[in-house]
Amino acid sequence: MEAFLYESQAARVKFGVDVRKEVRKELESLGGKRALVVSTLEQKDLAQEMAGYLGELCVGVLAEAVQHVPRETINKGMAVVRELQVDSLVPVGGGSSIGLAKALALETRFPILAIPTTYAGSEMTPIWGITENGQKKTGKNIIVKPKTVIYDPTLTVTLPPRLTVTSGMNAIAHCAEGLYAENANPIISMMAVEGITALSSSLPKILEQPEDLEARSKALYGTWLGGTVLGSVGMALHHKLCHVLGGSYNLQHADTHTVILPYAIWYNSTHAPYAMEASSKAIGSDADDVAGALFDLSKSLGVPVSLEEIGMKREDLDEAAMIATRNPYYNPRPIDESGIRSLLEFAFVGERPIQGKSL
């Protein structure tokens, strides 16, 4: 066995049906007395529900989170934080709400108690992202990692079918890239395989039976694992491309992950044999067709499989390839602009990766 380094990041996870109602007790354990509940405008009612459970420990609701965490939204949030003398943050929702809370924590060092309602996994990571001047920048800081996460599968029941699938594919992407991370280790790899298995098997069941809390619990379990993988080891080409496409061209975050995943895996397949073998067992495909199987899964679940479908313009592909290769980063296969441009062309038209043939 090769040498490896494994570091565990402290986190408290409360998982189960209706555990959201215990949010006050969890906030008290963090010492929070003046919490700000953070959400998108669309989830303001849910945010108000959480505020009700918190009682006098909540001093306000900030329902202004939007995707990609633009600097303008952070500035507005900081004004509210100062006005209300906030001492803790309770984001309710998906990556937009949790992302805004992280950005506020980056400036204030306030503890975060996260209540996710999608399968994106941001709640388990110390990774932050902020969009400014048309560019999305990301970084890591343990300060922004939520101290406590409440996973309540009942909160995902009203998640629209498309977002159910795309946020689930986002979580699968965390696991898939974790398997070929530069600092991969056996513990995280086991979590990654388990996460892919849980998500790929539960998403079809959720679409068939939206009220199936067992299937939703399984997907949320996979989300927890995917988020843990994302927060524990480095990511590579897939996540870099998604940050470029989302931040620079304002593409929907989960849709972008869903579209790009098969092509990023295809690009790396010949340079990451262990990852392909492990992923194939998790999703039940041939090792030389993991990319194609992921494409088939997305297509069978009725979500977009091309960049064109989610609003990307062909004339922007050259620029996107240039931005994505401008700064060096780890990837199992060397990154070059022509190769990434070819990947983006396949992704733009939504052509299935070819089994046994490298991109």
Rank of each mutant, 00 (worst) to 15 (best):
M1K: 10
Y6D: 09
E7T: 15
V19L: 07
S29T: 06
S29M: 09
V38W: 03
S39D: 05
T40E: 12
L41D: 10
C58V: 03
G60L: 08
E64F: 05
Q67S: 15
Q67I: 09
V69R: 01
R71P: 07
T73Y: 00
K76W: 09
K76S: 14
G77K: 08
M78P: 00
M78V: 02
E83V: 11
Q85E: 14
L89R: 04
V90G: 00
V90R: 06
V92M: 04
G93C: 05
G94Y: 11
S96T: 02
S97W: 07
I98Q: 13
K102H: 15
K102Q: 15
A103M: 10
L104P: 14
A105W: 01
L106R: 11
R109Q: 14
P111H: 14
P116S: 12
T117D: 15
A120F: 12
G121A: 03
G121M: 10
M124C: 04
T125H: 04
P126G: 03
P126S: 05
G129W: 01
G129Q: 08
T138R: 04
G139L: 08
K147H: 15
T148L: 08
V149K: 02
I150R: 09
D152K: 13
A173I: 01
C175I: 05
Y180L: 07
N183T: 14
A184N: 10
P186T: 05
I188G: 10
I188L: 05
S189V: 06
A192L: 09
G195E: 04
T197P: 07
L203N: 06
P204V: 03
L207C: 05
Q209E: 01
P210D: 14
D212M: 05
D212K: 01
E214S: 13
S217L: 01
S217D: 12
A219S: 14
Y221F: 13
W224M: 08
L225P: 09
G226H: 11
G227H: 07
G227W: 00
T228F: 08
V229K: 11
S232Q: 00
V233E: 04
A236T: 13
L241G: 01
C242E: 14
H243N: 10
S248Q: 07
L251H: 07
T256Y: 08
H257W: 08
H257C: 13
T258Q: 08
I260R: 06
I260N: 00
Y263Q: 08
W266A: 11
N268W: 01
S269V: 03
S269D: 01
T270D: 14
H271E: 12
A275E: 02
M276G: 00
M276L: 14
E277C: 05
A278S: 09
S280G: 12
S280W: 07
S285Y: 08
D288P: 05
D289V: 02
G292Y: 02
A293H: 03
D296A: 03
L297R: 06
P304M: 05
I310N: 11
R314N: 14
E315N: 06
D318A: 15
A320C: 11
A320L: 06
R326H: 09
Y330A: 11
P334A: 13
D336Y: 12
L343V: 05
L344N: 02
G350N: 08
G356A: 15
K357I: 15
K357G: 06
